[in-house]
Design a protein around this nucleic acid. Structure first.
Length: 110
DNA sequence: CTCTTGACGCCGG
DNA sequence: TCCGGCGCCAAGA
């Protein structure tokens, strides 16, 4: 179904995790890497660049809140549309509030 | 097998 | 806050 030719288990795990990120929330590449328990931030980034087209890719970004390189404008448009908390500058996501650990939908951004 | 590249992360300066 | 450098890990040339 949602798997394309050439996609391995690792890629599927990453895409699955990304699909679970609720609207208005985000996860850093490193967060996804730890959640799937393999590779690292760069590997997650590779998967997103290759197969991210079928998932809410804008909800995965850098640890400092910066949108994916080369997709800043597209991502910001999404954040504004789904009410993702942005920093005063409006160029980065407020990770303190928007970061989703994947623990449970009952998130609690202290 | 070696070198370069990449939708990254973190620590200085 | 912005920039540069180093570390990390897998894929491609």
């Amino acid at each position: 179904m949602s798997d394309n030719p050439g996609m391995d288990d690792y890629a599927e795990a990453v895409l699955d995790a990304v699909e679970r990120i609720p609207p208005g929330r985000v996860m850093a590449y490193g967060d996804v890497a730890e959640l799937v328990g393999g590779g690292g931030p760069r590997q997650v980034g590779r998967v997103m660049s290759l197969y991210g087209g079928g998932v809410p890719w804008w909800r995965v970004l850098r640890a400092d809140g910066s949108p994916p390189t080369g997709h800043e404008a597209r991502a910001l448009a999404r954040y504004r549309a789904e009410g993702t908390p942005l920093r005063p500058d409006g160029r980065r996501v407020d990770m303190r509030r928007a970061r989703f650990t994947g623990d449970f939908p009952g998130d609690n951004p202290k």
